[in-house]
Design a protein around this nucleic acid. Sequence first.
RNA 1: GGUUCGGUAGCUCAGCUGGAUAGAGCGUCAUCCUUCUAAGAUGAGGGCCAUUGGUUCGAAUCCAAUCCGAAUCACCA
Length: 589
Amino acid sequence: MNLITLLKQTTSTSLDSLYQVKIQPDQVLVNATKPEFEGDYTIVLFAFVKQLGKNPEQVGNDLGNAMQKALPSIITKFNIVKGFLNFTISNDYWLEFIKNLSPNELMPAIKHKRKIMVEYSSPNTNKPLHLGHLRNNFLGWSIAEILKLQGNEVVKTCIVNDRGIHICKSMIAWHLFASGATPESSHKKGDHFVGDYYVKYNDAYKAQVAELVAGGMMQETAEKEAPILKGAQEMLLKWEQGDAATLDLWKKMNAWVYEGFEVTYKKIGSDFFKTYYESNTYLLGKELVEEGLTKKVFYQKEDSSVWIDLTPDGLDEKIVRRKDGTSVYMTQDIGLAQLKQKEFNTDASIYVVGDEQNYHFKVLKLICQKLKQPAADGIYHLSYGMVELPTGKMKSREGTVVDADDLVDEMINISKEKTEALGKVSDFTKEQLTELYNTIGLGALKFFLLRVDPKKKMIFNPEESIDFHGFTGPFIQYTHARIKSILRKTGTAVSITPNELLPLEKQLAIELSTFPEVVNEAADNLDPSKLAIYTFNLAKLFNTFYAEHSISNAESEVKKQLRIQLGILTAATLQKAMSALGIAVPEQM
RNA sequence: GGUUCGGUAGCUCAGCUGGAUAGAGCGUCAUCCUUCUAAGAUGAGGGCCAUUGGUUCGAAUCCAAUCCGAAUCACCA
């Protein structure tokens, strides 16, 4: 059992036997003691002094004595400052902890394992990936790894948005302006090539609207009448009717995009167990509309469109089938949720989607619940904030985006420059160097995007390059490499014997002991930033320790053994935590 | 207008299930490589925690109102 839980329980039982008062262990607040006071853990007494009708000094003394008696091998002493009861934990307890912790078993599996689907990435096939997609991909990958670390089975999926009017826009632009050009002929990555035509469409559209307005047309009418828009709409219609030429063009252009995506995904390390294509799923959910009507969850208006009334739940009315019988986005999503449930039978399904769709997912879950879909309660939306530029939102069609490929390449280049300037890896082969640059560059980028609370929007300034010092991926990678360097010299065979613990040694042990809780917290909140912060704190603490105490040149052999073990455990914990963020840690850098 | 989310150091962010003197990183200034990797460490400076009121022994944290910003409330996806 972990120490904090033990302290809470013992507090509860001690108070019961002292005063015959029932206080649940959950109600007991146990904190790490502030450094300026003596002790390791603090129980806040105010919470129950009132209930007991005694002064804090009295309660603190009684409780302190009772707890020390109950846990003689753990609590060595206690003191009371105002309403705070500070316990000092015995060195033996921490020594045992350090001795028994295995680098291969840092994370005990949780009791209730689940099968969880994580859907992430969801690209559109009319443009290349940008910085916002990177946030999505890193979050999705990381939350999947965190859930796996807990012992869950995870299925990663992706839904590709490969049809619709926006796809037809780049198609019509290619049709009109490309005169047969291909990614090969223009030496471009396929997704970028197609994305260029999406921008070209938009430019042409704007020009046409302006022209119509200049000719005396109302702005609003012009926006509907622009010939290129008409062309795109016509293409969509043809696509839906299965027109062979249109489908050929669609397939050709999508294939270009997939080829480009594959390169990017490989580089950033995203993968999927199954990929769904909207062109296959956009008709799903039709039977569910019928079912909903029978169950009276949905109702039909005079024009025969079908709706659900969510006003009793504090939301609005929502359409689920148009009057022409076609389904809407929501209907598809309900259908897809049902399909995924049939195929994988998961306990929970996490959708990694931007916060602009908060409302959509609230409604989706609610409708699924009302339809009594088996997976309904397990729907979670990992909602993340947009990545914005100092000038505002990124817009693909305006071309004001930070391109994913460009940014990744830039990060790798910077890591190359910095590594070369430091000159610490002269013994590396060319392949090893390439791998190292990738590891560090991507590490910096991933950490940068994962270290903040997902639900907060973030501003990225392309003028300021992403840092390699301080609260960053490379800092943690560096700490890991440094420990490994020491361990290469000292060896890793250790035997821990009784020993006095210095404050920093104890602090390291305490920090290491909280790893499982942090993983669980990150998983429960779908928030990898909790782990990122933890790795930083651990690395920072180790660096302080490193500057203060020598490992290979320790005061005594006993100390050396102890510190080697602390080094092993710290390196392993950093490696585990970082890999759950999708970041590799090098042996040397 | 309704709903939701946010406002903490010059900048980027932690802390938010109420607890001791509000913490990091970057940037600024100063110190530390003949001893395990200086992508490091140590220290200084920097704060009406948006505003006002309330609850409480105790509020950055909870409640209410106000101000500012964002998203959303599509027969778009």
